[in-house]
């Protein structure tokens, strides 16, 4: 299946990402060895200059991975028709065991890259580059994750063989080999309880952090938890309400035109809120330097407020779509 244009585009995107990240990784190693802010030597100046390049590369990687995440989902949806039994993207991802891992790794990369960019933003606000070592240590984690994501994605694509007529003499080919197009979902009531309690706790945690100026780390942990819980909730009940079908659990079809693109409306705030929360959580434990205190004092409340607001929006949207739907799941 490697000659499919969208698949080629995805492979190209991953290749470019790795080509750019590899030297960045090597640079990280160099920097961790030689970084000395107090020195005015030519090497230090060169290192400082190169940090600009790495930051730009990471920004590029983030943007490209975001685009390729969307493209992967839509390609999977488009390809579903090629596999017997696959009704939509879920089916395509199930064709071989590398499908969903490829998706999850892309998501992980998205969160890691956004955390790195946030840490970089904070680091740049203080005159003594207090987070630089941590930042480049983080980069040394981003790189293997990106490599793994690329490899898994390639394996997934290599394992995609369309169920097409290959022989002019063969008759009804492979009746048995169908792909499971269903995603197991939790019982709706449980999922709702889980969703509202976790997201509710997150929002409360955020409000508390804003009021008392403490506990931002707890909020970050909660927002990290909120992401998988919300996705599970989409699968377990929100998708059913939106499609008005008791068995259509697919979290990807929401993004299609026939459902009014509501998927974007739901996913954008969720992704943004979780990314912000996680980024803050990754940065805070290391932001102890005195020079960062005024910076964090300014940035933390803003980030917490934005993330809290977005989580609240999520809850409102979930409730709205569930309420408005013609499907009755409870009672």
């Amino acid at each position: 299946m490697l000659f499919h244009p969208a698949i080629m585009a995805l492979l190209l995107a991953d290749a470019l990402t790795l080509i750019l990240l590899l030297p960045a990784g090597l640079f990280a190693l160099r920097l961790l060895r030689h970084w000395d802010l107090n020195s005015g030597s030519a090497r230090q100046i060169r290192l400082e200059r190169q940090t600009y390049l790495v930051a730009t590369v990471l920004g590029f990687v983030f943007a490209v991975q975001l685009l390729s995440l969307l493209l992967l989902v839509f390609t999977a949806d488009r390809l579903a028709v090629q596999f017997v039994g696959a009704m939509c993207a879920v089916g395509t991802f199930n064709v071989n065991p590398f499908g969903f891992p490829a998706l999850f790794l892309k998501l992980a990369l998205f969160f890691l890259a956004s955390a790195w960019l946030f840490m970089n933003h904070v680091d740049n606000r203080a005159p003594d580059y207090p987070l630089t070592r941590v930042k480049y240590g983080l980069l040394l984690i981003v790189l293997p994750v990106a490599a793994l994501a690329a490899v898994v994605q390639v394996r997934y694509f290599l394992g995609l063989r369309a169920d097409v007529i290959t022989s002019c003499c063969g008759s009804l080919f492979s009746g048995e080999k169908t792909v499971t197009a269903e995603l197991a979902g939790m019982p709706p009531l449980q999922a709702m309880i889980g969703f509202y309690s976790v997201l509710g706790a997150t929002v409360l945690g955020g409000l508390f952090a804003l009021w008392r100026r403490r506990g931002a780390l707890v909020f970050s942990a909660l927002s990290a938890l909120a992401f998988p819980v919300a996705i599970a909730a989409v699968i377990a009940f929100l998708s059913l309400y939106i499609y008005e079908h008791p068995h259509h659990h697919c979290p990807f079809c929401l993004l299609k035109a026939e459902y009014g693109y509501v998927g974007y409306l739901v996913y954008l705030p969720l992704f943004a809120a979780s990314a912000l929360g996680v980024a803050l959580g990754v940065t805070l434990p290391f932001a102890r330097a005195a020079t960062l205190a005024p910076v964090m004092a300014r940035i933390t409340p803003r980030v917490v407020a934005m993330a809290t607001g977005l989580f609240m929006l999520c809850m409102v949207l979930f409730t709205w779509f569930s309420w408005r739907s013609n499907l009755v799941l409870l009672g």
Binding site: F60, L67, S68, T75
Partner: peptide
């Protein structure tokens, strides 16, 4: 089709940006 546009973007604009990242940086520093 959105898929097409995204693929087109990845085939043309993204490699262009990737190719110019390092030269642009070199000029900027």
């Amino acid at each position: 089709d959105g898929l097409q546009l995204a693929s087109l973007f990845l085939f043309t604009v993204v490699p262009y940006v990737a190719a110019t990242l390092v030269p642009v940086w070199r000029a900027a520093v």
